[in-house]
Each structure stands twice: as C-alpha cells, then as structure tokens.
Amino acid sequence: MRNSRKKIQIVVLLGVLLIGGYAIGKTLFADDNPIPRAGDRAPDFSLLGADGEVHHLSDYKGKALVINFWGTFCPPCVKEMPEFQKQHEKWEDSEFEILAINLSETDLVVSSFLRQFDLEYPILRDQKRATERMYGLRSYPTTFFVKPDGKIMEVFVGGMTEEQINERVERLLQT
C-alpha cells in the first residue's frame, strides 16, 4: 500500500516534470521567426541568380558577406550598385562576396536594369517577397554585413556611400 503510493507519487511528478517542462521550455526557448539583428545568424535561403544558377547562403560559408536588398524602383539602391561593384573589385582576392538580392521584381525589369550596369557580383532574385520577409525588411535598401561565422555584424538601413561600405567591409574582414 505505502509502496504503491510512493510509486504513484513519483510517476505523477515525473509526468508533470516532463510535460510541464516541455511546455514551459518551449515558451522560454521559443524561436518564432524573429527578425534577424546584429549577433543573430543570417537566415538561410536558396535563390535563383540572374545567372540562372541556384545560390544557397551555405555556398558562401566561411566568407565575409554583404547581403544587399535592392530594387530598380528604389533610387538609393540603384545608386549603391556601382559602389558595391567597386568593393567587389577591391576585395576580389579576399574571402569576401557581395550578394545583391532583388526585391521580387519581374524578369524584364531586372534584366533590362542589369543591362545598363556592369555588375560582376551575384545578383539573386527573391520570389514573392519570401526572403525579404524572412529578413524582416522594412525599408529599402537594407544591407546585412555577415561575418565569416555566419553571424550578422551589422544591419544598415538606407543608402550608403562608398566610404561607409568600405569601412564596414574592412571591419568584416578583420574578424
């Protein structure tokens, strides 16, 4: 009698610990799609490039990255593009890459835009704003500086001058 009582107590308390622990733990470590900020890991994506290839973020593992979201309809974005090209040329020999993600525009819009510029870094095409949403974009352009370990160093909202870009890329490459 006494023994079975003890058993019931332990079984009930263990059950509470398991189920309750799971439920409470879930709230404490909830990962409900937070907006990536400095210090967070850059969310993974797979996007079709303007080159017709599929680019995965993981392809660039170990490289310092600049992920830039741009659209032809956003003048500061357009203004930045040649600056990024200069940076691309400058750091060509380093473990560094620039990924420019277009904001879900149509094929012709993007291709006719690209014809006017001579851009050598990968241009990726977001579809139905999925990646944009994943990265929690609120205004354009927005640029993510990602360290070689995949963590975001800085999120810059708005257009940048060449100097501003250069200073950040240098910091990025030092890490």
């Binding site: 009930v12 509470v16 189920i19 309750g20 439920a23 409470i24 879930k26 709230t27 404490l28 909830a30």
Partner: peptide, 15 residues
C-alpha cells in the same frame, strides 16, 4: 498567453 509564467501557472494548475 504564450509567456513562460502563464504556461507555468497552467502547468501548476494541471498538477
């Protein structure tokens, strides 16, 4: 209603 303390209270009531 998804906070740790609210769920903790519910778990305690259940217990």
């Amino acid at each position: 209603y998804e906070s740790w303390w609210f769920i903790t209270l519910l778990v305690m009531i259940g217990t």
